[in-house]
Design a binder for these strands. Structure first.
Lengths: 132, 132
DNA sequence: CACCTGTTTTGACGTCGGTCGAAGCAGAGG
DNA sequence: CCTCTGCTTCGACCGACGTCAAAACAGGTG
């Protein structure tokens, strides 16, 4: 699931460029929620920064004071969010990040482009704009 | 709280560059968790992309089929995560994003730098590296 | 096959979090 | 001062989530 974030989010339209649709925000929030846990975020960075671009579960478990099943659970959440992929080779399972997804997320978060509405000077003297 | 993410995270060290410390991941996860909800993510983009760079709560409430208190709650979460700031002017409260924070988050997510450990070619023939 | 290690799944438990209605607070305007 | 509107806080409800122990599964090795 969430194999291609770009297909849903429309690839790389910055948050500050135009409002996200309900569906876009739902898909994006799923990914951010996966990163919204200290353990998972650290797992992600451990995997991403590990030599060779991949890390064995056995390497990851020792870093935390958590049970094996708990680590496995967090890895599953990251996997289902599309942030990492796991591959079994013999006895061990190796995880690696999906750089495209990180790249897309990074692009979405980039602040207002020069010609975005938010970059226009606010008309402080005018009454607040209300659509109704 | 979380007035300056850079002070805690060390500013802009990409996730894939080196592993996050427990404290860094805790602080970062707090921000990502705030973005890990569809409503909040949409609120954030509504505010960020709104003309003048700010939006009144009254503008935001109408977009969702949610009660006022619920919207207010989500805005509070975003505010306490340091993602937005609120200012009362007369009857209305205006929110605007903190672009620095978005910028820092975007920088943290940028994938592996060319000379990061993860970018080194994996030695597929070698036995898995285990610290112990 | 039996057994051992590494990893995932299952089931349960306690806490956290999104939601609402009701009540409270802040300004504007009679 | 009273009241009306915009927004926030409070209290409660219920589903979602992080955690663990136990059990199941996968591969290697005798």
């Amino acid at each position: 699931m969430l194999a291609d974030l770009a297909a849903v989010v429309g690839c790389c339209e910055p948050l500050a460029r135009e409002p996200l649709s309900a569906q876009q925000s739902t898909e994006l929030a799923r990914v951010f929620k996966a990163m919204g846990d200290p353990v998972r975020l650290r797992l992600l960075s451990l995997i991403a920064s590990h030599a060779g671009g991949e890390a064995c579960v056995c390497d990851l478990t020792d870093v935390f004071d958590l049970s094996g099943p708990t680590i496995s659970h967090h890895l599953k959440v990251l996997r289902e969010a599309g942030l990492i992929t796991g591959e079994r080779r013999g006895t061990w399972v190796y995880y690696r990040v999906r750089p495209e997804l990180l790249d897309q997320l990074s692009a979405v978060l980039v602040p207002a482009a020069p010609d975005s509405p938010a970059a226009m000077p606010a008309d402080r003297d005018a009454l607040p704009v209300v659509d109704a």
